[in-house]
């Protein structure tokens, strides 16, 4: 399990995955000031929500690379004959994906907050929310990757599958910026549900994709 996680983390960083996610995240946060104008007070008010929406879109970026390549390359088959269950594979991938994308994303919220004129307090709430929500987001990304593996146009389908399921994370994550601890607790509940349920669903999807 440890070797599996380490392999995926290494591939996540080596493939430029983390850099791409961070660059995309910052690019989306830059788009909003351009779109709604340089009104600092307005940006400060909507900035937290923008960071959350950008994080969601950035998390969608690597979905296609998470599961499908290993199914095609026969890696999943080789693990299966060694008695590694698909659920374990999915859990390892979830943990590895979180390690590969969440810490760089959390660091990137600092320049994003500067771009959006977010105060230190609001940045702290956004960062705390992302720290709590990203495990759920990682599980959702791996689950989506497993569900769409092998489909034609998997990238577009992945967006349609993943974004609606990520809406609760977005609502409670962005809500916690104004709602405080209550919002964070609801966010944690949703994140926990996704983190636990994701590998089970992803494992079943991997099992089906093998056959």
């Amino acid at each position: 399990m440890g070797a599996l996680v380490w392999r995926d983390v290494r591939r996540g960083y080596a493939g430029g995955g983390a850099t791409l996610v961070v660059a995309f995240f910052l690019l989306v946060t830059v788009l909003f000031p351009f779109a709604i104008g340089p009104d600092a007070a307005l940006l400060a008010r909507v900035g937290g929500g923008i960071v959350w929406a950008a994080a969601l879109l950035a998390a969608l970026l690597p979905v296609e690379r998470l599961v499908a390549p290993d199914l095609e390359a026969g890696v999943v088959d080789q693990l299966a004959v060694r008695g590694v269950s698909p659920v374990t594979i999915a859990a390892a991938k979830t943990l590895a994906h979180w390690i590969a994308f969440a810490p760089p994303l959390l660091l990137a919220t600092i320049p994003a907050a500067a771009l959006l004129n977010l105060s230190g307090d609001r940045l702290a709430l956004v960062a705390a929310g992302l720290a709590i929500g990203t495990p759920g987001l990682a599980a959702l990304a791996v689950t989506t990757g497993a569900l769409v593996a092998g489909l034609r146009g998997a990238g577009a389908v992945a967006g349609l599958v993943m974004l609606p399921l990520a809406v609760p994370l977005l609502i409670f994550g962005a809500g916690a910026i104004d709602g405080g601890a209550g919002g964070l607790k609801l966010l944690a509940a949703v994140s926990l549900l996704l983190t636990v349920g994701g590998p089970i669903v992803a494992g079943a999807a991997i099992r089906m994709a093998m056959e």
Partner: peptide, 22 residues
């Protein structure tokens, strides 16, 4: 099987060592 299941970016010995460790 048909697919090699060896990580393309790794040295051959390292790619095989991953599986040997499994």
């Amino acid at each position: 099987g048909e697919a090699a299941a060896l990580d393309p970016e790794r040295a051959l010995a390292d790619a095989l060592a991953f599986w040997a460790a499994q």
